[in-house]
């Protein structure tokens, strides 16, 4: 079974598309995972938990909305995956640490044959061609990871490669 991490971003859509092209022939099972963060954790992470009264904020309602949205996102991803030939099911999971650690935990839990990720998600640091989540997953996964660049990322890379013109074209084909 594949674990496909999906956050609704263009990169994640590309990841599902490519997973289908590469792996959909055999009707592979896939779990499409969207993580979400309980609001108390968001507050804690941002340092805002120390603001007076933050701990008593009614975050349960907010969490309910967020988890529902996450499940909707995962369902959307599962539909895309089914459309490209995978046998996909959605799952929304609250993060214990970061999206990356949750992805790794779920991958271990389902003994995923591979983790499929877009190279970037919704993160705003556009200079990174490899987002923080895919970076973390790659460095800690004990199973195969497929990283799929989105069209725009692929375009950026192609443009970048064009700036520093390739030293030489590939040497003439030489089959061993």
């Amino acid at each position: 079974m594949l674990l496909i991490a999906y956050d609704g971003s263009q990169s994640a859509r590309a990841a599902i598309d490519q997973a289908g092209t590469l792996l959909g022939r055999t009707g592979t099972d896939a779990l499409v995972l969207t993580t979400w963060e309980p609001y108390q954790d968001t507050l804690t992470r941002s340092g805002a938990a120390t603001l007076g009264g933050a701990a008593s904020m009614p975050t349960a309602d907010l969490d309910e909305q967020v988890s529902r949205h996450a499940l909707e996102t995962a369902t959307e991803g599962a539909e895309l995956a089914t459309a490209v030939g995978l046998r996909a099911a959605p799952r929304a999971e609250p993060t214990t640490g970061s999206p990356a650690t949750t992805i790794l935990e779920v991958a271990d839990e389902i003994e995923a044959e591979a983790i499929v990720l877009g190279s970037r998600g919704h993160g705003r640091v556009a200079s990174l061609l490899l987002g923080s989540t895919s970076h973390h997953v790659l460095h800690h996964a004990h199973r195969p990871v497929i990283v799929v660049p989105s069209d725009c990322v692929a375009g950026e890379k192609a443009a970048r490669a064009g700036d520093t013109s390739r030293a030489t074209p590939p040497t003439p084909a030489r089959a061993a």
Binding site: L130, H139, P144, V145, I146, V147, V148, A154, K157, R160
Partner: peptide, 22 residues
């Protein structure tokens, strides 16, 4: 380094899917 220099560079520059296997 958990990720060797070659796979690291390939990942950063590939305009196509990359399967990295531990």
């Amino acid at each position: 380094l958990l990720l060797g220099s070659t796979s690291n560079q390939v990942l950063h520059h590939a305009a196509r899917p990359v399967l990295v296997v531990p």
